[in-house]
Design a protein around this nucleic acid. Sequence first.
DNA 1: AAGTCGTAGTCAATAGCGTTAACTAACTTG
DNA 2: CAAGTTAGTTAACGCTATTGACTACGACTT
Lengths: 225, 225
Amino acid sequence: MTASSVSRRRLARGSLSRQGIVEAALRLLDEEGPDALTFARLGSALEASTTAVYRHFASRDEIVVAIAEELDRISLDGYEPADDWRDSLRDLAWRAWRTASEHPAAAAAAMHRTTRGIHELRAVDAVLQAVHEAGLRDEDAAMSYAVYSHLVLSVCSQHATRLVSVAAEGEEGWVQVYHPTDPAAYPYAVQAAPHLLAIDHTEVFRRQVELVITDVEARAGRAGV
Amino acid sequence: MTASSVSRRRLARGSLSRQGIVEAALRLLDEEGPDALTFARLGSALEASTTAVYRHFASRDEIVVAIAEELDRISLDGYEPADDWRDSLRDLAWRAWRTASEHPAAAAAAMHRTTRGIHELRAVDAVLQAVHEAGLRDEDAAMSYAVYSHLVLSVCSQHATRLVSVAAEGEEGWVQVYHPTDPAAYPYAVQAAPHLLAIDHTEVFRRQVELVITDVEARAGRAGV
DNA sequence: AAGTCGTAGTCAATAGCGTTAACTAACTTG
DNA sequence: CAAGTTAGTTAACGCTATTGACTACGACTT
């Protein structure tokens, strides 16, 4: 008869919203890992019933897309084009990397999806602006946009996936765990093993990004600024 | 009294094997899409019981890893290093792309995973051999290996994911479907829209691969062959 | 202030999922 | 041919996403 015994009270009407649900989902993924995104756990995180979220999202998939859009929003928050288009592309790339690193479970689940949302559009526009400033137009601009964006998103998404799988298992060494029947058959791998272990993934990404920027530079130069 | 009425007969003892199961799983994914990989459907595809596969794989995850290894095997089948290391890297990259294109559902589910299997090791060794022939050693070789491999695998994996999601939905246009409140706020995207639609993903991948090869070339030249 | 109405949140039910334990019969071994 | 292993089966479990029916909150009317 009191308001609640163990919290059996019905939630007030405006309690849930798409944004609030997405934030709860992101928090859940950050804190409890990639398997935490279920209607049951999301409901209890919001102190609501298991199916309450269905009033705001038609399916689990729709939540994932909304999370992707939220990651876009977080990544772009406060972004301004730099004076040099190269720095703009660097900034955008590292924002994606940073988001993948800080929200690995969410990024692994959502980053590879296309959202058609407003923040995704902002990101597309920002990249296109940079290659425009570099001097590229039309097909050339679109092509370089794709070379850059697909690379950055794919690699960041993969990075996030690696982070969650490393968190799950213990990520052992390299050639050691292969136990090939004949190690001599893979001489280059055997010899490179220690160096492969020492690889800094952040540095790898840096080099990949610089590669694309250099390429845009070269193509813009050839086309004439 | 006959052997079977509707196929109620118990399977003979050696009927199932890891390789056979993996092949059935791959066929299932190819023919019925990314959601077809369940114990129930895999069992009935093998004319076995739902749980028979557990005698050969400890979990669903282990099947996925085995599929990844099978994709590695398919990709590398018949591979021989070329005379020019550049052609070796091209060959390896396009083999991955081809596999992702031909087995999109399987590639989307498995390609992003590390298998620690023998064919993965073969691939690692092949890439390292190529960068070795280019003239890179030790840390330089390992770094360029990573730049190349992460790019190729990430992008091919993403390509596979795009193929299955295109198959599911109808992949609409671009800026058209964004319906931004203020299209004028995204001038570059609006203007580029038709060119973005016309992008050839295969050509994008070709350029990304050439980018890395050129980079390896430059670094090898600097280090002195 | 009472009435009505759309709908956000809840409840109950369902089919399908991965996984486990117990069972049984086919093959292997002595 | 007897005993023992174990691949394949059966039945059950808890969890999942999703659905339809229910209900009560709060915004509209007048």
